[in-house]
Amino acid sequence: MTETAVDAVEPSPLALAVDIGGTKLAAALIGADGAVVLADRVATPQPGPGPGAAEQVWAALADLVKRMVDAAGDRPIVGVGASTAGPFDLVGATISPVNIHAWRGFPLVDRLREAVPGVPVRLAGDGSCAAVGEHWRGAGRGHDDLLVLVVSTGVGGGMIHGGRPFLGVGGNAAHVGHMVVDLDGEPCPCGGQGCVEALSSGPSMVRYALREGWHATGEGTARDLAAAARAGDPVAVAAFERAGRALAAGIVSAAAMCELSQVVIGGGVAESADLLFPSLQAGLDHFGRMGFLQGIGLRTAELGGSAGLIGAAALIHEPERYWS
């Protein structure tokens, strides 16, 4: 009996993606097709001030990373992509997220290189990674001039310009949430005044509604506000209209600078697209009168909470498009 030799099939490579935020730390193993093979998350530690605070946060992330490395088994991990809240410094490879007080100038890239040696580590902002993810495998496919906004407790964003991420020198470009759209507007958590985020984030919408006389139900969250708007509460409806108009002003301002063909809206507030999108579309029509500002497509995100992780994986699997 003659034996037939069978070529060994090489295990398909994986990217190890991490997504760092103020409330959660997430990690995932993601294939070259963008499929999430395994994912896990933990709450972001909230240590008090002190010399060991930064290491407490790192220990939680390092444990997640180790579990992913162990779970990969025989499949090679070819790189680590990191999506993080900002601000950060791509040149110095450090991060100082406003919502992780323990990390100021934290050397995240060096720490990840120590945890997963011998492979590249690539870092980008969470908004930029969400934009890359939606461009690579989500609602932005086929649109090479794309803005992605994540409307939740804040308003984050990222931009694809000419088919490539628009990052800026330090990696902090495309912060549309901190474009000023109301010169006499409310203070913003960033320290500025009248930013898109100060009018359109979930907490900002709730604050406005309460100030205007909304009698909150439940815990008084943005979801409670959405339920009230769907039930016809005029103050709740006005809060969504105001938020949509502010988002539109920010989008048109960004489009006037860079030209855009598509805008993708994600995040928790985007779950109320039925309430937000009518005023958002009306605002785009009102503010965008010049020809090249008209006809911008508007879609909801497809990747949900995985957009940042998938975008971080694209930095590893598709570096010629999204990194180099």
Score class of each variant (00 low, 15 high):
49 P>V: 10
302 E>F: 01
129 C>K: 09
140 G>F: 04
40 D>L: 07
258 C>F: 15
91 V>L: 13
105 G>V: 09
265 I>Q: 00
20 I>Q: 11
157 G>A: 08
82 A>S: 14
247 L>D: 07
311 G>K: 03
132 V>G: 09
285 D>G: 03
61 L>T: 04
6 V>W: 05
306 S>I: 08
272 S>H: 13
149 L>S: 03
14 L>P: 09
113 R>E: 14
308 G>A: 15
263 V>G: 05
81 G>C: 07
195 C>Y: 00
67 R>H: 10
131 A>S: 04
203 P>T: 03
28 A>T: 11
324 S>M: 10
57 V>L: 02
257 M>R: 12
6 V>M: 09
286 H>I: 07
190 C>E: 02
166 F>H: 14
322 Y>I: 08
28 A>K: 11
164 R>H: 13
28 A>G: 13
205 M>F: 04
288 G>T: 08
117 P>S: 09
169 V>W: 11
303 L>W: 04
293 L>V: 13
176 V>I: 14
232 G>S: 11
270 A>E: 09
264 V>G: 04
202 G>V: 04
318 E>D: 15
148 V>T: 06
83 S>W: 08
284 L>W: 05
309 L>R: 09
210 L>E: 05
143 H>M: 14
61 L>Y: 01
27 A>E: 12
139 A>L: 14
37 V>L: 15
267 G>E: 06
12 S>A: 15
233 D>M: 03
95 I>L: 03
54 A>D: 08
249 A>K: 13
170 G>H: 12
112 L>F: 07
93 A>W: 02
299 R>D: 14
13 P>Q: 10
152 S>H: 07
253 S>L: 13
121 V>W: 10
19 D>Y: 15
47 P>T: 00
168 G>S: 00
51 P>M: 00
156 G>Y: 01
212 E>T: 07
66 K>C: 01
33 D>S: 15
127 G>M: 08
49 P>D: 09
307 A>L: 12
175 H>V: 02
313 A>G: 07
260 L>V: 07
317 H>S: 07
11 P>F: 12
51 P>Y: 00
155 V>L: 04
183 L>A: 08
151 V>H: 04
183 L>I: 10
257 M>T: 13
143 H>C: 14
254 A>D: 01
14 L>C: 11
141 R>W: 06
172 N>H: 00
63 D>W: 01
157 G>D: 07
5 A>R: 13
305 G>C: 07
74 D>R: 15
239 A>T: 11
317 H>A: 07
164 R>E: 14
311 G>I: 09
318 E>M: 10
217 T>L: 06
256 A>G: 15
1 M>E: 12
295 G>L: 10
133 G>K: 03
204 S>H: 00
141 R>I: 15
261 S>F: 03
221 T>H: 02
119 V>N: 08
238 A>R: 12
86 G>Q: 08
219 E>W: 01
156 G>S: 12
212 E>D: 11
235 V>F: 01
59 A>F: 00
211 R>E: 10
282 A>C: 10
191 G>C: 09
117 P>M: 12
213 G>M: 02
321 R>K: 11
194 G>W: 01
145 D>P: 12
257 M>K: 05
312 A>H: 11
